[in-house]
Amino acid sequence: MSSFRWRTIAWFAWYRGQSGQWAQLLHRITGLGIVFFLGLHILDTSLVGFGPSVYNTVTAIYHNFVVRLLEVVLVGLVIYHALNGLRVTVIDLWDEGALYQAQMWGVVILLFLVLFLPSAFLMLAPYFR
């Protein structure tokens, strides 16, 4: 009866935030978000084959401010996923990588802010002029 609920509780209990589990959970959530957008993006770009009026009409959706906010989120997902993917690769390839995974996650968060905040500013500034 409650096996689903117990499994869910057990799953959250397992994610105690130890040993890079939050880093890994975020890696998956960002990855799933990106691949979902990429599927949509393949479909919207394929419309270019139907000529200017179809493509320009459909991609006008992206000019909406709310969608622009989602686009900023997308850039954030990609930056985190890229930087943390690099961290995972270093953990895999460097003998002592696993010992420094927590410090490297700190570097990932720092670099994320350094890359994401100016990007978000550049993307949103035109709307406030």
Partner: peptide, 25 residues
């Protein structure tokens, strides 16, 4: 890491997405 960040920088960050229309593609 390299290809996608360049793509995002060109298409999404350094210009408004309004520029990306049929003529642009």
């Amino acid at each position: 890491l390299i290809l996608l960040l360049i793509h995002l920088a060109i298409m999404h960050v350094t210009q408004p997405i309004e520029n990306v229309n049929f003529a642009f593609v």
